[in-house]
């Protein structure tokens, strides 16, 4: 099971955190500090796994961002690497060659996509296309609602003029 997912920038800024096990705010800060210290200091070419407490953290760097997933001792580290890559590919497809800024300004979108990929720390979908389709469908639901709301407020504005 994936205990948590972190996105950390090379400067150590947190871009996304998703916790599938309960960690208090204080613990979260501690974990982030501990792990960014360990992971950011690792030079390239080393393996992508770090043993941490009773878990393992699988991380992979894409441009300026480190994608980290903390897994149990007996989970498959190589598969976790694939899951990370899977997520990155979906993000890439959604944003159109994704960059760190996309994930900063549209952090909620990154979360929505992650929620279509993982639930309860387990993988729910292995098809990138399906995830993209589900996200698009929900985005369009939001759009329709917005349009309706603005047309209603227009009507109200007209009426009260």
């Amino acid at each position: 099971m994936i205990q948590f997912v972190l996105l950390i920038s090379r400067q150590g800024k947190v871009r996304l955190t998703k916790w599938y096990s309960p960690y208090s705010q204080k613990e979260r800060t501690k974990v982030l500090r501990e792990l960014s210290g360990v992971i950011l200091s690792r030079v390239p070419k080393l393996c992508n796994f770090v043993e941490w407490r009773e878990y393992k953290v699988v991380y992979k760097r894409y441009a300026s961002l480190y994608f980290c997933m903390c897994i149990d001792q007996d989970d498959n580290e190589l598969e976790t690497l694939e899951i990370i890559h899977h997520y990155v590919e979906i993000l890439d497809r959604y944003f159109g060659s994704v960059c760190e800024l996309d994930l900063i300004f549209n952090f909620h979108k990154a979360y929505y996509i992650l929620d279509e990929l993982l639930i309860a720390g387990e993988l729910q979908e292995s098809s990138k296309k399906t995830v993209a389709r589900l996200i698009a469908a929900q985005d369009s639901l939001v759009e329709t609602a917005k349009e309706q709301a603005s047309s209603i407020s227009n009507i109200i504005a007209q009426a009260t003029k």
């Binding site: 909620h108 979360y111 929505y112 929620d115 929900q138 639901l141 939001v142 609602a145 917005k146």
Partner: peptide, 11 residues
């Protein structure tokens, strides 16, 4: 009631 509100609320 709306989906957009619920979506952000659950997040």
């Amino acid at each position: 009631a709306g989906f957009p509100e619920k979506r952000i609320g659950y997040l």
